[in-house]
Structure formats: C-alpha cells, structure tokens
C-alpha cells in the first residue's frame, strides 16, 4: 500500500467525505447522543471499532459472497460483531457498559457502517478497508466531539461532565465548569439544538472547503472509489 492511498483514505474520512458533515449518514445516533462530549466521543469510538472490524471482515470474504446475497451477509456480519462487542464489554468493562450500553446496539442500524462496507470494503483489500473504517470513524468522532462540546457548553455550561462514569470517581476533577452558575439553555440539549448546531457545522465545513478550492489549482486528485451509494 502506497503512502498516497494511505493519505487519501484519511483525507477522505476526516475531511472530504466526512460522515458527519458531508455524507450526512447515521444522523440518528449523531443527533441523539451528542448532548455531551463524553457521550459523543464514547459512541464515536465504539462506532470506529465496529467500522474497522466489519470493514476488514467484509473485505476478506468479499470474493466469496454472491452479489445478490451481499446485503444480508453484510448486515449479518455487522450485527454479529456489534453483539459480540456488546457482550464482551458487558463482561469485561461493566462500568463503561452501563454508560454506553443502550447506544451500542444502535450502531447496527447506523447506515454509515453499511454504506462504507458497500462503497469501500466490498471493493478493496482488508488492510485498506480497516483503515477506511478507522478514518471514517475518526471523522465521525471528531464531528461528534465538536457537536457534543458546543451543546454541552450552551446547555449546561460545562465540558466533559460524566467522565467519571468512564474513568471512575477520580476523573471527576477533569470536569471543566466553563460558566459557573450558568442556568442552562434547554434547547441546546434537546434534539432541535442538535439540528441547529449540526447545520452550523455543515455551513462552516462548506465555507472552508470553498475557500481552499478557490486557492488550490483545480482537480487535486482523489483516486479511491469512495462515493456513497
């Protein structure tokens, strides 16, 4: 695998084809979970793991599965992986499972996982597919972190609240109260707040992209076939 492919995969995942603000796939978990940084990043990382593993798994069996049967097989693989991860987490990391437990099954229904498998992993080797899953997942996690940060800041006046649920009581000191005595802005925490903030983020991304496009010479090549179905 050349350096260029590696760079393309990560440029695609983190910026050009960012799942959160460009492809706009998997909106349901993005909007539901992004009410605090800790929730958002935790789900983002769990999704990243699932995407990397399922990408690699599908890439390995992609030549064995008949075309007609591929969607059920892909879904089956994702569902099995997610359930195995859920069970393993429940057994080995019970504390974290109690925080994330109800979000984990949602990953199966997150269409970004299936979309990347269909668009990328079913056409590329395992290593690239796993990397694509990681890159896409990291792009998603980044958007979720920013979204969660803005909503938590406006909604509660804090950052990283609830981090003690992940790292134990000692982590409580990591919670940052940005605005002491702030009474909270409910709209930011409720679903409409998620739509508003996400809309602003998409606008920002588009503005930045347009600016860079005007400066760079046209046609910086992105070679991988990675457009969503």
């Amino acid at each position: 695998m050349t350096r260029q492919i590696f760079k393309d995969i990560f440029f695609n995942g983190l910026w050009k084809q960012n799942t959160g603000v460009v492809q706009l796939l998997g909106m349901c978990p993005i909007l539901a979970v992004s009410n605090s940084v800790v929730n958002a990043v935790s789900l983002g990382l769990a999704t990243t793991v699932v995407m990397a593993l399922s990408g690699a798994a599908v890439a390995l069996i992609r030549n064995v599965v008949p075309n007609e049967a591929r969607i059920p097989v892909f879904i089956l693989i994702i569902a099995v992986l997610v359930t195995v991860i859920q069970l393993a987490m429940n057994a080995q990391m019970h504390g974290l499972y109690l925080v994330l437990g109800i979000f984990i099954p949602l990953i199966v229904t997150n269409c970004i996982v299936l979309a990347r498998i269909e668009a990328f992993a079913s056409k590329n080797p395992a290593t690239q597919s796993a990397l694509d899953g990681i890159a896409m997942g990291m792009g998603l996690t980044a958007v979720l972190a920013v979204l969660g940060g803005i909503r938590e800041l406006f909604g509660h006046g804090t950052l990283l609240s609830g981090i003690d649920l992940v790292f134990g009581e000692t982590a409580k000191s990591l919670v940052i109260t940005v605005l002491p005595g702030y009474h909270g802005f409910l709209l930011a925490i409720l679903p409409p707040g998620a739509f508003v903030v996400l809309g602003l983020l998409i606008a920002l991304k588009n503005w930045l992209s347009l600016r860079t496009e005007n400066k760079l010479p046209a046609g910086t090549p992105i070679t991988l076939s990675s457009h969503p179905a």
């Binding site: 064995v64 599965v65 008949p66 007609e68 049967a69 059920p72 097989v73 089956l76 693989i77």
Partner: peptide
C-alpha cells in the same frame, strides 16, 4: 448457491 452461502454465514 446463494441460499447455501447465506446458510453458511448464518
């Protein structure tokens, strides 16, 4: 063949 394939994966 498709059915068999699905069965194996299941």
């Amino acid at each position: 063949q498709t059915a068999l394939n699905l069965l194996v994966f299941t």
